[in-house]
């Protein structure tokens, strides 16, 4: 239905010729933009309602004094539903470790929460289909669980800033929301998020449409195809500075995949964009000493690169 609407606008109203480069690019742009905004609005709203039942204070209680492995799995899963903003990373981290959440379990949460987020999921589902979206969620959880376990095993508690352990943490009595308040929260959250990401979506889909219409087929196969062993690490390195623009980056990668970028490289790039970010590193530096911060980045980057190679070999 959306497709015929886009066709109608481009080929009937504007009068471009079907099959022409400009016509196809514009058609692709209108169709993708409509589809993504429709998906974003509905799913962000639903996710926001679910999230109101998982405030971080509750997640903290569920994870406190959990053992390794079970704790890591639970933390990665809770990372999906607990709202997280990198601006609250410091109070969240202190609240977790102070209430007895093991360090490795805390990291499983900190990795999964930004990586397996609803915007990335919707964009992947809308553009790549549900299979790729599920693979992304599954491997994202595995990366978060494994990296958290490894950090836990390394016993790096002494590389947390000393003041964190001395902090006195109070117990806030957060009053649970009633259903009407939950809907109100979801409404505001959806509007706020859409307001923030819509320019990235438009620019991203626009660039994607341009690549779709004007860049020759298999253009990237030589550089970013499965045969180039350097493609995955380069994609991960490029993903680090592109923080928070998952909404804009995914449409571009989608078009690049059509031109021959391998699927594992695509997944690794996406994960690097969402999970490894410079602003987050700067914020986390308030609570982590350099050694732990570098270890965290190193382990997550390595895990993501492995995911990239694995899916390039498998699919």
């Amino acid at each position: 239905m959306l497709k015929s609407f886009a066709d109608y606008i481009v080929f009937t109203i504007i009068g471009l010729v079907p099959g022409s480069r400009l016509g196809e690019a514009l058609d692709f742009f209108i169709y993708d933009t409509l589809k993504i905004f429709l998906l974003l609005t509905t799913i962000i709203y639903v996710v926001a309602i679910i999230r109101t039942s998982f405030p971080p204070e509750k997640t903290k209680r569920m994870l406190s004094h959990k053992r390794e492995y079970i704790g890591n799995v639970l933390a990665a899963l809770l990372g999906i539903v607990t709202p997280f903003c990198s601006c609250s990373a410091v109070p969240l981290f202190i609240g977790f470790v102070e209430s007895g959440v093991p360090l490795g379990v805390t990291f499983s949460f900190l990795i999964s929460s930004p990586m397996v987020n609803e915007v990335a999921l919707i964009m992947l589902w809308g553009l790549f289909g549900w299979k790729i979206a599920l693979i992304y969620v599954g491997t994202g959880l595995v990366v978060a669980i494994v990296a958290g376990i490894v950090i836990g095993k390394l016993k790096m508690e002494k590389y947390v800033q000393d003041y964190v352990w001395e902090m006195q943490v109070g117990n806030a009595e957060i009053v649970p929301l009633n259903f009407r308040e939950k809907l109100g929260y979801a409404h505001e959250y959806t509007l706020e998020l859409l307001k923030k990401i819509w320019p990235y979506v438009i620019v991203g889909v626009g660039l994607g449409a341009f690549i779709h219409g004007f860049v020759p087929q298999d253009f990237l196969a030589r550089w970013a195809g499965p045969d180039n062993p350097f493609a995955v690490p380069i994609a991960v390195a490029l993903g680090v500075p592109l923080y928070s623009n998952a909404a804009g980056v995914i449409p571009i990668i989608h078009a690049l995949m059509e031109k021959g970028m391998a699927i594992g490289t695509v997944l690794a790039f996406m994960m690097a964009v969402t999970a490894l970010s410079l602003p987050e590193a700067i914020i986390l530096k308030n609570v982590l000493k350099n050694r732990l911060l570098l270890t965290f980045f190193g382990i997550v980057a390595t895990a993501i690169i492995c995911v990239g190679y694995l899916f390039n070999a498998l699919l």
């Binding site: 609250s88 109070p91 969240l92 977790f96």
Partner: peptide, 14 residues
Amino acid sequence: IPKIMAYGVMSTPA
């Protein structure tokens, strides 16, 4: 941060 944590708040603003 210490004052914020004293209230037990984990997501800001509050």
